[in-house]
C-alpha cells in the first residue's frame, strides 16, 4: 500500500509542477504580466515600480523561480478591486461553495441511488424507462437554463423560495453556514437542486448499470436461493457492490461540482468562489483569477489522489496491478 501511495503522490507532484509551468507561461510569457499584475489605470512610474517589485526585469527562468517561491509561501498577489490578498479573498468564499457542493452531493446520492437501483431492477418495465428518460433531461439540458427555470417556477410564479443570495447564516466552528438557519436553508435549496440535477442523472445511470451487472452474479443468485428476503439481498448483498463505482465517480465529480458551481453561483447570486471568479474575469482582476486557477488545480489533483486511494482500499485489485506495472 505504501509503495502505491508514494507512486501516486509523485505522479500528482509532477502534474502540479506541469500546471504551475503552464500558468506561468500563460500569464508571464504569452500575456503581458504588467497588464495582469498591475491595475490598468496605473501611471508609467507606478508600472516601473511594480516591474521592479515583481522582478519582471529579471530573466524569465529567474522569474519562474520567484513565481514558484511566492506561490509556495501562499502569496498569489493582491486583488485590484478588493485590495486584499487574492488567496485570502478566495478562502473567504470557500465555505459557501463547499456548502453548496456538499448539499448537492447529498441530494444526488439520496435521490440518485434509490432511483437507479429501481431502474436497474425493473429495467424493462415502465418505471425503469420513465426514470431513464428523466435522467436524459438531467444530462442534456444546459445547467444555467435549468437554474433559470427553477427560479422562474419556484421564485417568480409560485413565490415559495427566494430567487438568489445566501440568506441568514450561523457560525459553525467559526465558519458562517446557511445550513443552520431556516432562512439560509430556503436560500440554499434551489441552488443545491440546480447543481444536483446533473449529478443525480449520473448517479442514476451508474447505479442502474451496477444493479444490472450485480443481479447476474452468482452470490446474488445464491443469496436468493437461500431464501433471503429480497430487501436484504438488495440492501446488504447488492448495494455494497453497486456503490463502488458510484463512490469513485462522485468523488471525481466533487471537483466538477466546484467548477460547475461557477454557473449556479452566478445564476443564483450565491456568494461563493465561482461567482468571485466570474466577477474577477469581468473586472480584469487577474491576480484573483490566477490564484483561483492554481487553487482549483491543487484541489483537483488532491481529489484525484484521494479517490484513487479510497478506490484501492475498496478494491485491492487496483493496487496490485498498479504496483506491478
Amino acid at each position: 500500500m505504501l509503495v502505491y501511495v508514494i507512486r501516486r503522490l509523485s505522479q500528482s507532484l509532477v502534474v502540479v509542477a506541469v500546471m504551475a509551468a503552464l500558468v506561468f507561461v500563460g500569464v508571464y510569457a504569452i500575456g503581458n504580466p504588467i497588464d495582469m499584475m498591475v491595475s490598468p489605470d496605473a501611471t508609467p512610474a507606478e508600472m516601473q515600480a511594480a516591474m521592479e517589485r515583481l522582478g519582471l526585469d529579471e530573466p524569465l527562468w529567474k522569474q519562474f523561480f520567484v513565481f514558484i517561491g511566492n506561490m509556495l509561501q501562499g502569496d498569489m498577489g493582491t486583488s485590484f478591486v478588493h485590495n486584499e490578498p487574492a488567496l485570502e479573498l478566495i478562502l473567504q468564499r470557500l465555505p459557501a461553495t463547499m456548502e453548496l457542493a456538499a448539499c448537492a452531493m447529498l441530494i444526488a446520492t439520496l435521490v440518485g441511488v434509490p432511483l437507479g437501483v429501481i431502474a436497474g431492477l425493473r429495467s424493462e418495465g415502465p418505471t425503469g424507462k420513465t426514470i431513464m428518460a428523466g435522467s436524459i433531461f438531467g444530462f442534456s439540458l444546459p445547467n444555467f437554463w435549468q437554474g433559470l427555470m427553477l427560479i422562474m417556477l419556484f421564485a417568480v410564479i409560485l413565490g415559495w423560495l427566494p430567487a438568489g443570495g445566501r440568506g441568514e447564516t450561523a457560525p459553525l466552528f467559526g465558519v458562517q453556514i446557511s445550513f443552520l438557519t431556516v432562512d439560509g436553508l430556503t436560500h440554499l435549496l434551489l441552488p443545491a437542486i440546480n447543481v444536483a440535477l446533473y449529478k443525480t442523472a449520473l448517479v442514476i445511470r451508474l447505479a442502474r448499470a451496477g444493479t444490472r451487472e450485480v443481479m447476474m452474479m452468482d452470490y446474488v443468485k445464491f443469496a436468493r436461493a437461500k431464501g433471503l428476503h429480497p430487501r436484504r439481498v438488495i440492501l446488504v448483498h447488492m448495494l455494497k457492490n453497486i456503490l463502488i463505482p458510484v463512490v469513485t465517480v462522485l468523488g471525481l465529480e466533487l471537483g466538477n461540482v466546484i467548477a460547475f458551481a461557477v454557473v449556479t453561483e452566478t445564476v443564483f447570486a450565491w456568494p461563493g468562489m465561482g461567482k468571485l471568479l466570474i466577477d474577477s474575469i469581468v473586472n480584469l482582476d487577474r491576480p484573483v483569477v490566477v490564484a483561483y486557477l492554481m487553487l482549483t488545480v491543487l484541489v483537483f489533483i488532491l481529489i484525484n489522489f484521494l479517490v484513487d486511494l479510497a478506490y484501492s482500499a475498496l478494491d485491492p485489485r487496483v493496487r496490485l496491478t498498479e504496483s506491478k506495472g
Binding site: 500563460g26 500569464v27 504569452i30 500575456g31 467548477a259 461557477v262 466570474i278 483569477v289 482549483t296
Partner: peptide, 18 residues
C-alpha cells in the same frame, strides 16, 4: 489525460480569462 482531468467549463473559462 491531463486535459480531460479538468472539467471543460473550467478550461474554457480560464482560456477566455486570458
Amino acid at each position: 489525460d491531463l486535459q480531460l482531468s479538468f472539467p471543460a467549463i473550467l478550461v474554457a473559462l480560464i482560456l477566455l480569462a486570458v
